[in-house]
Nucleic acid binder design. Structure first.
Lengths: 205, 205
DNA sequence: TTGCTTATTGGTCGCACACTCAATAGCATC
DNA sequence: GATGCTATTGAGTGTGCGACCAATAAGCAA
């Protein structure tokens, strides 16, 4: 068993240590919130002195931004993978929407709220949030566009549709603590169906 | 001019002092965020020692919750007044939607995000958030219901419609920092029009 | 084995926070 | 003008935070 007091110091390659730190920070961000990313907390997690975290991230703000970026990018890949292993755009979109309807999505949804709020005070984080917003919108927009060229979707403004879906998703996430009737949880799908000229239920099979 | 160093102590009625504190805290919450509500900050604002704030709010959490409640309730009354001086439900709803489309709305929108996030760590605030969510939804739901009985709106589930409008509003608020094209900003109105069986543009005159 | 680079430590500083409580002084009442 | 109640102060406690830096030891290369 690993003792609570650190006995022996383990020396690692800077790159791997840095990655380790970011991974730990991202996990904490998802589970407990970005303000729980402190030098002491991360150090404890990795059984390392807080000073070491400072060594890799001279400014703690940078670590917070990096942790958010890592978590958000990871979640995007899990929810809406770039490579669509044989799926049609419609099936791919339906998969995304079903994944965002699950309870697992609440964690990343909370993280988004957390980040948007905190970015009010932290410029570095603000930039990362903007970057990830663009990444999420871009990924969704590309999917919509492919669906249009494939003849499955019909819309004049793929970007706008992507934004609308994300707005509904975020709005729903904001209400994650309250009781949400099924009809409300279906909002993202019905919005997508309306905007893409799909028959009702096309995305919730 | 009021000196920066406090010279003379002013003695006030407990009820008015308490109200003063809450008002100051609510203003700070709207302008700078709930985490800026500190004993020092409020004391400074009222030219009073921090200990006095502690005297009225033995737990700072209670003050934060009270400040949010006060600000949210005040904003609700400003955006969607209870008494509709002669307006029809449709005109009243249109007024609400136009007010929430203005830049002024961003402050309260940010406050909601702030409160939802912070309520993760503060149970007292969480209860207040739930209370205000119910108040906002209730006020909107009542308006929808009146519009239905007046024959202006048509829907089977006024509560659901109210929730949908609020979800879109919150989702839009979450994206307040990003560039929002006009078509996106029209989302709450178009959503309401669809859900209430109104002709397009009925709510944006 | 020896030496050297450098990842890691331990200790310290200053700051901001909430909270406590005896002492003080404003002010209404007599 | 004196008195008593109590709103308000001042001083202090303890906690947790980021940041800093000289000293140390891990582990690779010679």
């Amino acid at each position: 068993m690993s003792s609570s007091v650190s006995r022996k110091r383990v020396r690692k390659d800077p790159a791997t240590r840095r990655a380790e730190i970011v991974t730990a920070a991202a996990a904490i961000a998802l589970a407990e919130g970005l303000e729980c990313i402190t030098l002491r907390r991360i150090g404890e997690e990795l059984d390392v002195r807080p000073g070491l975290i400072s060594h890799y991230f001279p400014s703690a703000d940078d670590l917070v931004a990096e942790a958010f970026g890592s978590a958000a990018a990871g979640e995007l890949d899990a929810l809406l993978p770039r490579e669509r292993s044989g799926d049609t755009p419609l099936r791919h979109l339906a998969g995304f929407l079903s994944r965002t309807a699950g309870d697992d999505y609440d964690a990343i949804s909370r993280l988004w709220i957390n980040a948007r709020h905190l970015s009010r005070y932290r410029p570095v984080l603000r930039d990362r949030v903007a970057e990830q917003e663009a990444a999420w919108r871009g990924r969704l927009e590309d999917l919509v566009r492919e669906g249009v060229t494939a003849g499955e979707f019909r819309t004049e403004d793929p970007r706008l549709v992507a934004m609308k879906i994300l707005v509904v998703l975020d709005g729903l996430g904001a209400h994650a603590t309250a009781a949400r009737p099924p009809a409300l949880l279906r909002m993202p799908a019905t919005t997508a169906e309306q905007e893409l000229a799909l028959p009702p239920g096309a995305l919730t099979s």
